[in-house]
Amino acid sequence: MKLLVRNLSRTITEHEIRTLFTEHGKVADCNLVLDKETGQSKGFAFVEMPNDAEASVAIKALNQSTVDKSKIRVKKADA
Rank of each mutant, 00 (worst) to 15 (best):
Val47Thr: 05
Arg73His: 06
Lys71Arg: 14
Ala55Cys: 11
Lys42Asn: 05
Thr13Leu: 11
Ala58Ile: 01
Asp78Lys: 04
Asp29Ile: 00
Arg18Lys: 15
Ile59Trp: 02
Lys69Ser: 12
Val5Ala: 07
Ser70Glu: 15
Glu14Ala: 12
Lys60Asn: 10
Pro50Ser: 04
Val74Trp: 06
Gly39Tyr: 03
Arg6Pro: 00
Arg6Ser: 08
Lys71Pro: 01
Leu62Trp: 03
Gln40Pro: 00
Lys76Asn: 05
Met49Gln: 04
His15Ala: 15
Gln64Ile: 00
Val74Leu: 05
Leu62Cys: 03
His24Glu: 04
Ser41Ile: 10
Glu23Pro: 00
Asp52His: 14
Ser70Pro: 00
Ala79Asp: 10
Pro50Ile: 03
Lys36Gly: 02
Ser65Gln: 05
Thr66Met: 04
Thr19Leu: 15
Val5Gly: 08
Thr11Asn: 14
Val5Met: 12
Ser56Gln: 14
Leu20Pro: 14
Phe44Leu: 09
Asn31Ile: 06
Gly43Ser: 11
Gly43Phe: 11
Lys75Phe: 01
His15Phe: 13
Gln40Tyr: 11
Thr38Tyr: 05
Thr13Asp: 09
Ile12Met: 04
Ser70Asp: 11
Leu62Tyr: 02
Ala45Trp: 10
Ser70His: 15
Glu14Met: 11
Leu62Pro: 01
His15Thr: 14
Ile72Trp: 09
Leu62Asp: 00
Ile12Gly: 05
Lys76His: 09
Val47Cys: 09
Asn63Ile: 00
Ala53Ile: 14
Lys36Ala: 12
His24Ala: 07
Gly43Pro: 13
Glu23Ile: 01
Ala61Gln: 09
Thr22Cys: 10
Glu16Gln: 15
Leu62Thr: 01
Ser65Glu: 01
Gly39Glu: 05
Leu62Ser: 02
Glu14His: 11
Leu34Arg: 05
Gly39Asn: 07
Asp52Phe: 13
Leu62Glu: 01
Leu62Arg: 01
Glu14Leu: 11
Leu34Phe: 05
Phe46Glu: 04
Leu32Trp: 12
Phe46Met: 03
Ile59Arg: 02
Gly39Arg: 10
Met49Ile: 02
Thr22Gln: 15
Glu48Met: 04
Arg73Ser: 08
Met1Pro: 14
